[in-house]
């Protein structure tokens, strides 16, 4: 049971209020038609299996229903950073 800071509500909430939507920063290609099948396949299906800092997209499902990003350490489960969608702070060691 993680304790997650919702940047929109401005406080920590219990994990049961949230849902993890997987790896963050998977940008939808601007011109899907220009993508090869392989490129599209990578966009859809290929994800990192990081040991350590992992950027994830979460949504505050039973709270404000807003999405946001976290950097979570997959070894210690520590959440090292929480930040808004549309931003991408540099963090030492964080996988992109």
């Amino acid at each position: 049971m993680l304790h997650i800071f919702c940047p929109h509500c401005g406080e920590y909430r219990e994990e049961e209020e949230f849902r993890c939507k997987g790896q963050a920063h998977i940008a939808r290609p601007l011109d899907p038609e220009a993508c090869s099948d392989e490129e599209w396949g990578h966009f859809m299906f290929f994800r990192q299996n990081t040991r350590g800092q992992h950027r994830e997209l979460w949504v505050h499902s039973t709270g404000c229903r807003k999405h946001f990003n976290v950097i979570r350490n997959t070894v210690t489960y520590e959440i090292e950073k929480v930040y808004l969608v549309g931003t991408k702070p540099e963090t030492e060691g964080a996988a992109s």
């Binding site: 997987g22 920063h25 940008a27 939808r28 997209l57 969608v85 549309g86």
Partner: peptide, 9 residues
Amino acid sequence: MSEVLEPKK
């Protein structure tokens, strides 16, 4: 799942 950093028109 997906996200862009720069809003597109």
